[in-house]
């Protein structure tokens, strides 16, 4: 966050993070991390829907907080050792290329270019 984002993206992200807690406080009186799974799902669903609406209505809008956060989670998880080795099909050296195999032979999404 400190070394990769520029100032605008970083502030946008931090503001979004604070807002998640504020919304949860207003709804159930505790911060997001202390609220239960149902509340968390409700908060995130709301944020996602608002984000999608904004992406649809504004052409050059900065990525809304939920989408920004989820993008970081995706690239962080799928570039981690556990994400690559266990969640995805780990093929560092496939050894051959076959352009048309049954999906059942591959079973898991392979990493995109890593």
């Amino acid at each position: 966050m400190a070394e990769w984002y520029d100032t605008d993206d970083r502030e946008h992200f931090m503001r979004g993070l604070t807002e998640v807690d504020e919304r949860t406080q207003a709804l159930v009186g505790v911060v997001f991390a202390q609220s239960g799974a149902d509340t968390q799902t409700e908060i995130l669903s709301g944020l996602e829907a608002e984000g999608r609406a904004r992406i649809a209505s504004e052409e050059d809008a900065p990525s809304p907080f939920f989408q920004q956060f989820r993008g970081l989670v995706l690239s962080g998880y799928y570039s981690s050792e556990i994400g690559l080795r266990e969640e995805l099909l780990y093929q560092p050296i496939p050894g051959r290329f076959d352009g048309c195999v049954d999906v059942s032979e591959v079973t898991r999404s392979v990493s995109d270019g890593n």
Binding site: Q91, P94, F97, C100, V101, D102, V103, V106, G113
Partner: peptide, 10 residues
């Protein structure tokens, strides 16, 4: 062809 994919990274 959703039942088909590739093996390896060409």
């Amino acid at each position: 062809m959703d039942d088909k994919w590739v093996y390896g990274r060409r």
